[in-house]
């Protein structure tokens, strides 16, 4: 039940952001699927397996970039159109808010704590986004080298 709720809302919120940024209509279905899957995996990893939140975010971003890589080639869309709306769910809004909140409450050490965590989560999201294109490009390159028989 919980999982279904997450699938539906994750997909809807990704589609919602695609409406704001005026994404093409034919991409809405793809964005919905990608957003729902990435959000649900992130939610399960975070709430049920008590994994480090950085790893949960990283895996969520990897799923987004992998699906975007696949769908972009299948339906001839720019990858960016799929990535941007799906990534919004994973943005560390809570930590960013707490950075400001503690600052207002004169709790500066707590504010720096949360700020650093926000920065770390954002960096791990970025690393996750680059994992799939990097792996795909490496495999392609290795195949080409094998076919032509050249050395690195």
């Amino acid at each position: 039940m919980d999982i279904i709720e997450n699938l539906v809302l994750g997909g809807l919120s990704a589609i919602g952001f695609s409406l704001i940024t005026n994404a093409p209509r034919r991409a809405a279905r793809i964005i919905g699927i990608t957003g729902a899957l990435s959000w649900t995996v992130f939610y399960i990893l975070k709430n049920y397996s008590h994994m480090n939140i950085l790893i949960a975010n990283y895996i969520g971003a990897v799923i987004i970039s992998a699906l975007a890589y696949f769908f972009a080639r299948r339906y001839r869309l720019p990858e960016n159109i799929i990535v941007i709306p799906c990534l919004v769910n994973l943005v560390p809004g809570g930590n960013a808010y707490r950075t400001i909140l503690y600052m207002v409450q004169n709790n500066y050490s707590g504010s720096i704590n949360q700020g650093l965590q926000t920065f770390l989560i954002a960096s791990f999201l970025a690393i996750g986004l680059f994992t799939t294109p990097y792996v795909a490009a490496t495999i392609k390159r290795l195949k080409m080298l094998k076919r032509t028989g050249r050395k690195l």
Binding site: L9, L12, S13, I15, F17, L19, I20, W39, N89
Partner: peptide, 8 residues
Amino acid sequence: GAGLVSMA
């Protein structure tokens, strides 16, 4: 759409 984004 903005409302839907806020719910997640």
